[in-house]
């Protein structure tokens, strides 16, 4: 694939994921509304919100560092776009020797969080800096279990970090989630994704009842629209990441497309349900939860997976 092909793939992949993400955002809001016995917004609502923010004024706080403040959302969006495109590429061309491993994708997925912290710190607002410190603590607590969950998938699929090989091994054998350790790892990963998306119960960085809008307090107009789009993109890309690692990859041909769509919607609804049935936990409770509860479970899953591989018991 030449340079031109890569650029085209990047543009198509990004726009496709953004559209999917806006749809996911609508599903999220609609399910929330139905749970609260309301009707909820129309399907085009997230897109109109973005469009409206694009047409508004950008307020620059007097104490903000302009470059970092305005560059951060763009950096976050580009990191998320790149990660989403790589995921699509590795799912679409399983056979090809597309270089790119799970660690790179995992790393790219942390860029939006890092950019959020950078922008919040540059905005010069006290609310935003408290939010940034909380975001950092959450990042430190959920990254480790997520990486261990990723290792479970890798152990199951022949010790390769290449996502194409993880997908290929699952499609020729069985999905990782069809084993005890795989289920445990999937549950761990769902909690981590919840924290990565900054949704209740792990939305301490945004916490609108304590910190106004936390890390996003000072953003308005087009930069806010970029943040909104980034979050929508992550809402689409992270469930796809989970499907890729644990549920046999995303199928783009034949009747199995329906299976992939169902898996995607199922994960989305689970995330929305967790968000709607839990209160926000304190930051220390959040860190405690990930370090002392989720990480041991992830380690146990990893141990089970290794034992299963060693004795060739596929259901372990």
């Amino acid at each position: 694939m030449g340079l031109l092909g890569m650029i085209v793939a990047l543009i198509v992949g990004s726009i496709g994921t953004i559209v999917l993400g806006l749809a996911a955002k609508w599903v999220d809001r609609k399910v929330t509304a139905r749970l609260q016995w309301r009707v909820g917004p129309p399907w085009y609502q997230p897109a109109v919100d973005c469009l409206k923010l694009m047409g508004k004024e950008t307020v620059m706080p007097a104490v903000a560092r302009g470059t970092g403040f305005l560059a951060a959302p763009v950096v976050g969006l580009s990191g998320a776009c790149l990660a989403a495109t790589m995921l699509w590429a590795m799912n679409l061309w399983v056979g090809s020797g597309f270089v790119g491993d799970a660690i790179v994708v995992l790393y790219l997925f942390t860029i939006p969080s890092l950019a959020t912290m950078l922008g919040a710190a540059a905005s010069g607002s006290t609310h935003a800096s408290v939010g940034a410190s909380r975001e950092m603590k959450m990042l430190l607590s959920y990254e480790l279990p997520l990486t261990i969950a990723l290792l479970v998938a890798i152990v199951h699929t022949g010790n390769s970090f290449r996502i194409a090989e993880i997908v290929g091994a699952q499609q020729s054998g069985h999905a990782v989630a069809l084993s005890i350790s795989g289920v445990l790892a999937l549950i761990v990963a769902i909690f981590c994704v919840q924290a990565k998306l900054g949704l209740v119960p792990f939305d301490q960085a945004e916490a609108e009842t304590e910190l106004m809008a936390g890390v996003y307090t000072e953003y308005s107009g087009p930069p806010l629209a970029v943040i909104y789009i980034t979050r929508a993109l992550m809402l689409a890309a992270l469930p796809i990441f989970l499907i890729t690692l644990f549920m046999g990859g995303v199928h783009m041909t034949g009747w199995r497309v329906i299976v992939s769509v169902l898996q995607f919607v199922l994960l989305l609804v689970v995330i929305t349900l967790i968000r709607n049935t839990n209160p926000r936990v304190r930051i220390d409770q959040g860190v405690w939860f990930f370090w002392y509860l989720v990480t041991p479970v992830a380690l146990a899953a990893l141990a089970l997976a290794m034992i299963g591989q060693h004795y060739e018991v596929t259901w372990l």
């Binding site: 309301r38 106004m212 307090t217």
Partner: peptide
Amino acid sequence: LTPQYDVERFGIVLVGSPRHAD
């Protein structure tokens, strides 16, 4: 915002920061 009126149907939502407000 309650089910009786549910203004989110028309895209009206409460936000936490004045910078986001219309």
